[in-house]
């Protein structure tokens, strides 16, 4: 499973997006606001989710903001961090 697929499954499970399937989530749709509809509390939860499932620490929200644009962006961020580790 590639990082994007894995991410979608994790988000659905951990953020309780029960009404969605991985296929419903567009790789390039924004995660916050319109799009997936996540908010500020989900943003801090996402930091913990990435830490827990990928062992990657996002130190602050400035760093998170770039990574949290979309599934595409987040998967790219995770892959880069995994390679450099």
């Amino acid at each position: 499973m590639d990082t994007k697929e894995k991410l979608k499954k994790i988000l659905i499970d951990d953020l309780n997006l029960e009404e969605l399937t991985p296929e419903d989530i567009d790789d390039n749709a924004p995660l916050f606001g319109e799009g997936l509809g996540l908010d500020s509390l989900d943003a801090v939860e996402l930091v913990v989710i990435i830490q827990k499932h990928f062992g990657i620490e996002i130190k602050n929200m400035e760093e998170g903001r770039v990574a949290f644009q979309s599934i595409e962006a987040l998967a790219a961020y995770i892959d880069t961090r995994m390679e450099s580790a």
Binding site: V44, E45, V48, Q51, E57
Partner: peptide, 17 residues
């Protein structure tokens, strides 16, 4: 449970709230 299982850094803010 969230931090007992995965360490203090993995405490869930949603559960806390």
């Amino acid at each position: 449970d969230s931090f007992i299982n995965d360490g203090d850094i993995c405490a869930s803010p949603t559960y806390f709230a």
